[in-house]
Design a protein around this nucleic acid. Sequence first.
DNA 1: AGTACTATTGTTATTTTTCACAATAAGGAC
DNA 2: GTCCTTATTGTGAAAAATAACAATAGTACT
Lengths: 148, 148
Amino acid sequence: MSEPASIQHLLALRAQGFRMTPQRVAILRVLDECGCHLSPSEIHQRAGEMIPNLTETTVYRNLDFLAQQGLVLIAHVGSGRIVYESAAHHHHHLYCRHCGFSVDINHEELAPLYKHIQDKTGFILDTSHVTFFGVCPQCANKENTKEN
Amino acid sequence: MSEPASIQHLLALRAQGFRMTPQRVAILRVLDECGCHLSPSEIHQRAGEMIPNLTETTVYRNLDFLAQQGLVLIAHVGSGRIVYESAAHHHHHLYCRHCGFSVDINHEELAPLYKHIQDKTGFILDTSHVTFFGVCPQCANKENTKEN
DNA sequence: AGTACTATTGTTATTTTTCACAATAAGGAC
DNA sequence: GTCCTTATTGTGAAAAATAACAATAGTACT
């Protein structure tokens, strides 16, 4: 079995003068293998098992770098901290701002909008992470009954 | 001239047991008057002129609260810090992840998508802030010329 | 293999953001 | 106005995130 796609992608970055350091590879691998959201400190912890004295600073820097390069996605969870996930997973999130319940939204749902915005602005849009906020059905019910 | 709409909104929250403190009013007023993005520390600075010994902690707490109540919007700028803006301004952002250039997107552009998601998930979506990331035309050109 | 270049790392210090808890003050009832 | 309840504040301390800079180590070249 060869390297996962993300690592291949990382290799490609060498052509642009970027380097493939063990720290960078480890961070990417952690996100790949998890396939879920991870906070910087969680990533630091897991990647630290492969890279003995990995620094938090380095983790932050690389998450930034990998996000810029499109290899990882930034997910704005709730109204708080930022978490990251491998770009292999193309979906978005919808959060209830009352109870925190979340729903995945497939990227296909956004495709028409993306096309529209691209045509209109000339930007090439990342398929990266978008987070929507709202009120879930249960909480909406509670609000209504309270008001009536 | 009566109070701005946001303050009226805040008054309405009293019915739910929340309180209208001078700190809260000041923070909301700062965002209203600015009409633009402000970081928590900028907000603290400006609101601090009205409320002598206003704490950073209080600013953070109230921004959180006001965002939850839908009175202010959270805007995720670039891949970094969170900034806030008054909910009076209903637009979204598209950022170039290379140069940071940004474009406003009117909420109307998102309306069809919002309807679609609401129908499908049963959520009631906030009109609050959504940020898209992409590559602006200039940067896209640079990338292409580099590759060829 | 050895060298040079420079992207990237670790270090140290600083800033930003959150937390826990006692003190305060907003709002309702009298 | 006074009293009561408790949401909200400030305080002090911790955790998370960023910045500057010298040391390290990928990468391309020979």
